Simulated scan of single mutants.
Amino acid sequence: MTQNAMPQNEVHDNEEARRYELQTPEGLAFAEYRPAGPAIMFTHTEVPEALEGQGVGSRLVKAALDDAKAQGKKVIPMCPFVAAYIGRHQEYLELVDPAQRGAMGL
């Protein structure tokens, strides 16, 4: 699906840009990642300023983590927002390698 055809309010993995995206009326929210062998390293999350604190970032990260889980991939949460989300939602902790959890504060 091209970005122009991307339905609003649906999270989409833009593999070419290496980021999960969510188009909103206020602009694009995204979670950038890099493939890291059998894992996905999340490096940065950004939400339009008008939407900060309204759950858009959480919705985006939840979809990205669900996708990683469905693919059987581990997650390296270098992005503080992704790490904090995993810390608040322990069901995703299994996606983080146990050796990395301490370093991430999880």
Score class of each variant (00 low, 15 high):
80 P>W: 12
61 V>A: 09
65 L>P: 03
32 E>I: 06
23 Q>E: 12
50 A>E: 12
71 Q>H: 08
52 E>P: 05
27 G>I: 04
52 E>C: 05
41 M>I: 14
35 P>L: 13
41 M>Y: 15
37 G>S: 05
83 A>E: 15
45 T>Q: 14
82 V>C: 13
56 V>G: 07
71 Q>Y: 02
74 K>P: 05
21 E>P: 01
58 S>W: 03
37 G>H: 00
80 P>S: 15
46 E>G: 06
33 Y>W: 03
38 P>D: 15
43 T>M: 09
30 F>L: 11
75 V>G: 08
50 A>G: 04
33 Y>H: 05
72 G>Y: 02
68 A>Y: 00
65 L>E: 11
31 A>S: 14
57 G>L: 01
26 E>H: 05
36 A>L: 13
64 A>I: 03
61 V>H: 04
30 F>V: 00
25 P>K: 03
33 Y>G: 10
43 T>H: 15
83 A>R: 11
55 G>N: 06
56 V>W: 08
75 V>I: 05
84 A>S: 11
75 V>N: 13
59 R>S: 10
44 H>Y: 13
22 L>D: 06
45 T>K: 12
39 A>R: 12
61 V>C: 00
74 K>C: 10
51 L>A: 00
21 E>Y: 04
36 A>N: 13
49 E>P: 08
77 P>N: 12
40 I>E: 10
80 P>Y: 13
71 Q>A: 06
65 L>C: 05
53 G>L: 01
67 D>L: 01
49 E>R: 07
42 F>P: 09
42 F>D: 03
28 L>E: 14
73 K>A: 02
46 E>A: 09
26 E>V: 03
66 D>F: 04
24 T>A: 06
47 V>I: 00
40 I>V: 14
23 Q>Y: 10
42 F>N: 12
48 P>M: 04
67 D>P: 04
57 G>Y: 07
34 R>S: 10
44 H>K: 00
76 I>D: 15
53 G>F: 05
59 R>V: 02
64 A>Y: 02
22 L>M: 05
78 M>P: 12
83 A>M: 14
53 G>T: 04
76 I>P: 15
70 A>S: 11
57 G>R: 14
28 L>Y: 04
46 E>Y: 00
31 A>K: 01
76 I>T: 14
60 L>S: 08
51 L>Y: 07
61 V>Q: 09
70 A>V: 00
60 L>E: 08
83 A>Q: 15
66 D>S: 06
78 M>G: 15
27 G>E: 08
55 G>I: 04
33 Y>D: 05
67 D>N: 12
33 Y>T: 06
75 V>R: 12
68 A>E: 01
85 Y>H: 13
32 E>V: 15
25 P>Y: 01
51 L>R: 02
62 K>C: 01
69 K>P: 01
29 A>G: 04
74 K>G: 15
30 F>S: 01
55 G>M: 00
65 L>Q: 10
68 A>T: 00
